[in-house]
């Protein structure tokens, strides 16, 4: 034996490991967001690209500074990039460029790091960023540009309303067609308008088994059902379910934010409760609340009750029962 002068490693089993890592999961999420980001740049021009770049780089810088202070090396896991990209996707195109910078810094610092970093945050960091921007600069956050297809153009400042605002505020503007809603040729935040591109990314995450069906199906299903039942003042069961799914940020939220591991329940039953709860809140805000859109707040509110859902005995999977009569 020639190992006498070698130090052997000692550890508890297992001694092999799958190559899955936090970094790889984050990389998959970034890949899945790419189509929607691309569509955002296609419809909302070079300004959208600037917003994305500034939001992401601010997120990285903030993460770097705070992890330096905390003496941790968490920057390499890529979660700051995901937060930066998600925040850019929920900011209106044409907003001043300091807006994503402030939002992104708040998202990382106040949404994540103050709780102890990735894994310990209660709320979705990007949504915390958006909530702060909404509360501080509501005008910038509700001024929308009309989509102007084309690659890397400087688009004109033609304002437009989001489909949900048209309905909410009874504007005279014509509602967009389902096709335009589907491909994203409507007013809205940079990354939320193209259902098609978002679904493409979501399919990728399903194939890679990074997300499960529970939250998206229960969340979107609940919104569709309630919108169909209560959607129109004219009477019950006359609402437009498809419109409620395709307009606003529901698809982005359902597949990319309400599926965030850290801030949503772990068990299948818990995830379904989360989805249903968020769905009810969205419909309440959209129909009765002060804002035309409620996806961000619905997820944040359900984030807050996630620890409670996880502790609820009913949601914990049934274990193998003990022996009877012994």
């Amino acid at each position: 034996m020639n190992n006498n002068n070698q130090l052997l490693s000692l550890s508890i089993s297992p001694h092999i490991h799958s190559n899955l890592s936090v970094k790889k999961i984050m990389r998959d999420v970034i890949i899945a967001l790419a189509p929607a980001l691309g569509m955002g740049v296609y419809f909302f021009g070079i300004q959208a690209l600037y917003t994305i770049v500034i939001s992401t780089s601010t997120a990285l810088i903030t993460e770097a500074v705070i992890s330096k202070i905390r003496g941790r090396k968490t920057i390499s896991n890529g979660s700051a990039i995901v937060t930066g990209l998600l925040l850019a996707m929920i900011i209106p195109p044409g907003a001043p460029l300091w807006l994503p910078a402030v939002g992104s810094a708040c998202a990382i610092a106040l949404g994540k790091e103050v709780f102890g970093g990735l894994g310990r945050n209660i709320f979705n960091p990007a949504l915390i960023g958006r909530a702060i921007l909404m509360a501080s600069w509501p005008t910038f956050m509700t001024t929308w540009l009309a989509p102007q297809p084309g690659w890397f153009r400087r688009i004109d400042s033609i304002t437009s309303a989001t489909p949900l605002a048209i309905v909410k505020l009874n504007l005279t503007q014509e509602l967009p067609s389902y096709w335009n809603l589907f491909i994203g040729n409507v007013g809205g935040c940079i990354g939320e308008t193209s259902a098609f591109a978002l679904l493409l990314g979501a399919i990728f995450l399903f194939i890679r088994k990074r997300i499960s069906w529970h939250v998206p199906v229960s969340y979107i299903g609940c919104v569709a059902l309630l919108s169909w039942i209560f959607g129109k003042d004219g009477g019950l069961f006359t609402g437009d379910a498809l419109f409620s799914i395709l307009s606003g940020g529901l698809i982005l939220g359902a597949f990319f934010m309400a599926t965030d591991y850290v801030t949503t329940p772990i068990t299948p039953k818990g995830k379904i409760i989360f989805g249903l709860g968020a769905g009810i809140i969205v419909v309440m805000i959209r129909l009765k609340g002060g804002y035309p859109e409620g996806v961000a707040y619905s997820i944040l509110l359900m984030n807050a009750v996630t620890p409670l859902i996880d502790r609820w005995k009913w949601t914990i999977p049934k274990r193998i029962p003990p022996l009877k009569g012994d």
Partner: peptide, 29 residues
């Protein structure tokens, strides 16, 4: 090179452990 010695990170609550647990427990909890 075979030895896995990457540092432990914080649990991100992905739930993979529960999915593979043959005893149906929640290892992360």
């Amino acid at each position: 090179d075979n030895v896995c010695d990457e540092p432990e990170e914080c649990c991100i609550r992905c739930g993979n452990c529960a999915k593979v647990c043959p005893m149906k427990i929640l290892p992360n909890v």
